[in-house]
Lab assay of single mutants.
Amino acid sequence: EAEIKAARERAIVPLEARMKQFKDMLLERGVSAFSTWEKELHKIVFDPRYLLLNPKERKQVFDQYVKTR
């Protein structure tokens, strides 16, 4: 159900806005820029903003977040 709702939101909200919300979530959840995606996943997986991006986009935004922190 959450994935269906997220898919609707992905269709409406522009990618750039969704990427910003995802980055904000990473900051708010205290995701370490010195860790790996796999180790940090448990901090963010239950946040509704996690589903704003598809899996490939999530990883790309995380990688970008790590490089710029």
Rank of each mutant, 00 (worst) to 15 (best):
40 E>K: 01
39 K>N: 14
22 F>W: 10
35 S>C: 03
22 F>M: 00
59 K>V: 14
3 E>F: 07
5 K>M: 13
6 A>M: 08
34 F>T: 15
64 Q>A: 13
26 L>C: 05
68 T>K: 12
50 Y>F: 14
20 K>S: 04
31 V>D: 01
39 K>P: 02
53 L>M: 03
1 E>P: 06
67 K>D: 10
63 D>K: 13
36 T>D: 06
6 A>Q: 11
38 E>L: 02
15 L>F: 06
22 F>N: 00
21 Q>R: 14
60 Q>K: 13
49 R>V: 04
43 K>R: 06
33 A>F: 07
16 E>A: 10
22 F>K: 00
23 K>T: 13
50 Y>H: 04
66 V>T: 14
24 D>F: 07
10 R>H: 09
39 K>C: 08
65 Y>F: 08
5 K>R: 08
15 L>N: 11
29 R>W: 02
53 L>C: 04
50 Y>E: 00
8 R>E: 08
18 R>C: 04
67 K>F: 14
40 E>F: 02
12 I>M: 14
54 N>L: 13
16 E>N: 15
27 L>W: 09
61 V>G: 07
4 I>N: 05
36 T>F: 06
22 F>L: 01
19 M>F: 08
2 A>W: 09
21 Q>L: 06
68 T>M: 09
66 V>Q: 09
36 T>P: 13
18 R>T: 03
25 M>A: 06
30 G>H: 09
46 F>N: 15
11 A>D: 10
67 K>I: 03
18 R>N: 04
53 L>V: 04
25 M>K: 00
28 E>N: 04
59 K>W: 06
35 S>Y: 02
26 L>S: 00
50 Y>S: 02
41 L>M: 15
55 P>A: 10
54 N>E: 11
55 P>Y: 15
20 K>A: 04
67 K>N: 11
39 K>A: 11
26 L>M: 10
58 R>Y: 00
28 E>V: 04
64 Q>M: 13
52 L>A: 12
15 L>I: 05
62 F>G: 01
28 E>L: 03
15 L>S: 08
42 H>P: 15
69 R>M: 15
50 Y>N: 04
19 M>G: 04
56 K>G: 12
50 Y>W: 04
23 K>P: 00
25 M>V: 01
55 P>S: 10
1 E>C: 01
67 K>H: 13
41 L>Q: 15
14 P>G: 08
40 E>Q: 13
57 E>M: 07
62 F>P: 01
8 R>Y: 05
35 S>T: 05
57 E>F: 06
26 L>V: 01
52 L>E: 05
32 S>W: 03
45 V>N: 15
53 L>N: 01
69 R>P: 13
40 E>G: 02
7 A>S: 09
45 V>G: 06
30 G>V: 02
48 P>E: 15
43 K>E: 02
39 K>D: 10
53 L>E: 00
51 L>A: 12
69 R>K: 14
44 I>Q: 00
8 R>C: 02
2 A>G: 15
14 P>M: 05
63 D>H: 14
12 I>Y: 08
11 A>W: 06
55 P>G: 10
62 F>L: 03
55 P>K: 14
60 Q>F: 08
19 M>K: 14
10 R>A: 14
56 K>A: 15
30 G>T: 04
36 T>K: 10
59 K>F: 13
6 A>C: 09
54 N>A: 13
5 K>G: 07
3 E>H: 12
18 R>M: 02
2 A>N: 04
9 E>Q: 10
52 L>Q: 05
68 T>D: 15
56 K>L: 09
64 Q>R: 09
65 Y>C: 04
62 F>Y: 06
21 Q>P: 03
37 W>T: 02
64 Q>I: 07
36 T>N: 15
40 E>A: 13
45 V>W: 08
48 P>D: 10
62 F>D: 01
57 E>H: 06
47 D>T: 00
45 V>K: 13
62 F>Q: 02
44 I>V: 10
27 L>S: 13
60 Q>C: 13
7 A>Q: 12
40 E>P: 00
29 R>E: 03
42 H>N: 10
58 R>K: 05
58 R>F: 01
3 E>M: 10
16 E>T: 07
46 F>A: 15
64 Q>Y: 07
7 A>G: 14
38 E>I: 02
58 R>A: 13
